[in-house]
Amino acid sequence: MSDLKTTPLRDLHVELGGKMVPFAGYEMPVQYPLGVMKEHLHTRSKAGLFDVSHMGQVIVYAGGSYEAAALAMEKLVPVNLAGLGANRQRYGFFTNDEGGILDDLMIANRGDHMFVVVNAACKEGDIALMRAGLDDCSVDVIEDRALMALQGPAAEAVLAGIVPEAADMKFMDVGIFGSEFDELWISRSGYTGEDGYEISVSNEKAVALAKALLAHEDVEPIGLGARDSLRLEGGLCLYGNDIDTTTSPVEAALTWAIQRVRRKGGDREGGFPGADRILNEFENGTSRTRVGLRPDGRAPMREGTPLYATAEGGEQVGNVTSGAFGPTIEGPMAMGYVSSDLAAEGTQLFGEVRNKRQPVTVAAMPFTPANFKR
């Protein structure tokens, strides 16, 4: 643990009883005394506070022109960034020359520059990629700000007590607001399937802001364990598990994130790494597809569980990439990749757990409805 990086909230986690574990090179809380299941359910019913300061915060600047920064970034991601409105944010991913996914990320138009948030485990590679690939842009890594997420149906009322303007934001809006905790960079987004916000705050004010949010009766601190089960219930991919350099966005069922303008026939068709493969898959399909899975019974099917079409014999037709018990749905859930001809909702498959095949059904995602404020 002594070799791990820490976030500005590390001592607060310990003070709150957080169980600290290694994660993406950082010392992070996996749970608090409330426990993973109660933390999960509290976030779904009220509001949870997550430390996500381990993620990378980056500003891309192109002489004060967001459009110039966007067109440069479009050479690295298959996303319509030039068409993104001011004070809006969009989900995207870096692709490689083979059409695989290098990382997924959030990209925001903040008027005269672009703000990017990347995953902790990939941030060094992502930053190097941007610095090498974004001509005439500066890529500035933000080291002096923490990042936290306030998620759940009570998040709006809680944050509006500190920043009243936050209540007027819609899903994927971004803004910079003054507060008693200095300037806050806020997006109405998150990775739980719930309404909520991600809040960037100076390192000096991070603990004070976290304590102010936690002082509200509806807010509890939430660790990595519940963060994972929440995002899985929400049908959201975890980089390194559900998407990686071997999976294309089409295989991963992320085609919704590639806008029409970047597809064949669009005004800015292609022009990103792996475009030949990805655009071909749009037209001709893929041999495998990411799907939701609902195992029978109460026991989860974990990452790596092989999937078969029959209860005995036959070749493997897929595998589980994420699996857990869903506290909200009161049952096991998983996602994984299966042969595309077996990807229809309702298809029965079998997962091999401890050398015994158990029934599992292809299911729609998300497993619990999203509650974003549209």
Rank of each mutant, 00 (worst) to 15 (best):
residue 338 V to E: 05
residue 32 Y to A: 06
residue 344 A to L: 08
residue 295 P to V: 06
residue 335 M to I: 15
residue 55 M to Q: 12
residue 266 G to R: 06
residue 246 T to H: 12
residue 294 R to F: 00
residue 187 S to V: 11
residue 10 R to Q: 13
residue 216 H to I: 00
residue 3 D to T: 13
residue 142 I to A: 02
residue 356 K to A: 15
residue 294 R to H: 01
residue 66 Y to S: 08
residue 296 D to K: 12
residue 362 V to A: 10
residue 159 L to Y: 06
residue 25 G to L: 06
residue 59 I to A: 12
residue 235 G to C: 06
residue 46 K to R: 15
residue 68 A to H: 09
residue 295 P to E: 09
residue 177 F to R: 05
residue 187 S to G: 15
residue 124 E to D: 15
residue 132 A to G: 11
residue 105 L to R: 05
residue 65 S to Y: 03
residue 158 V to I: 12
residue 174 V to G: 12
residue 12 L to S: 05
residue 42 H to W: 14
residue 231 R to C: 01
residue 243 I to G: 05
residue 264 K to L: 13
residue 40 H to T: 01
residue 23 F to Y: 15
residue 218 D to I: 00
residue 294 R to K: 15
residue 347 T to Y: 09
residue 118 V to N: 04
residue 37 M to H: 10
residue 170 K to L: 14
residue 362 V to G: 09
residue 286 T to W: 02
residue 8 P to E: 09
residue 52 V to A: 10
residue 146 A to V: 03
residue 342 L to F: 08
residue 106 M to H: 06
residue 293 L to N: 01
residue 303 E to S: 12
residue 204 E to Q: 13
residue 89 Q to K: 11
residue 132 A to W: 00
residue 245 T to I: 14
residue 234 G to T: 00
residue 154 A to Y: 01
residue 176 I to Y: 01
residue 56 G to E: 04
residue 368 T to G: 02
residue 1 M to F: 04
residue 16 L to A: 07
residue 77 V to Y: 01
residue 268 R to L: 13
residue 334 A to F: 02
residue 330 E to T: 10
residue 355 N to A: 14
residue 307 L to V: 03
residue 204 E to N: 09
residue 285 G to T: 11
residue 3 D to R: 07
residue 273 P to Q: 12
residue 265 G to E: 10
residue 258 I to P: 07
residue 193 G to N: 09
residue 55 M to H: 10
residue 304 G to K: 10
residue 265 G to Y: 06
residue 360 V to C: 07
residue 239 Y to E: 07
residue 291 V to P: 08
residue 328 T to D: 05
residue 86 A to S: 11
residue 233 E to R: 03
residue 174 V to H: 00
residue 164 P to F: 11
residue 190 G to K: 05
residue 52 V to T: 08
residue 313 G to I: 04
residue 119 N to S: 13
residue 33 P to A: 13
residue 116 V to Q: 07
residue 231 R to W: 01
residue 70 A to W: 02
residue 123 K to V: 06
residue 155 A to M: 03
residue 214 L to I: 11
residue 312 E to N: 08
residue 247 T to Y: 09
residue 153 P to S: 12
residue 332 P to E: 05
residue 322 S to V: 04
residue 364 A to T: 13
residue 326 G to V: 01
residue 43 T to C: 13
residue 12 L to I: 07
residue 96 N to T: 09
residue 23 F to E: 08
residue 242 D to M: 02
residue 24 A to T: 04
residue 84 L to V: 12
residue 67 E to I: 12
residue 10 R to H: 15
residue 349 L to G: 07
residue 298 R to T: 13
residue 176 I to R: 14
residue 192 T to A: 10
residue 8 P to R: 09
residue 192 T to M: 10
residue 152 G to L: 06
residue 315 E to A: 15
residue 36 V to G: 05
residue 122 C to K: 11
residue 262 R to D: 06
residue 281 E to Q: 15
residue 272 F to L: 12
residue 240 G to W: 06
residue 330 E to M: 12
residue 155 A to K: 02
residue 186 I to G: 05
residue 3 D to P: 00
residue 264 K to W: 02
residue 214 L to D: 13
residue 124 E to G: 14
residue 15 E to Y: 02
residue 237 C to G: 00
residue 317 V to W: 03
residue 158 V to F: 02
residue 54 H to Q: 11
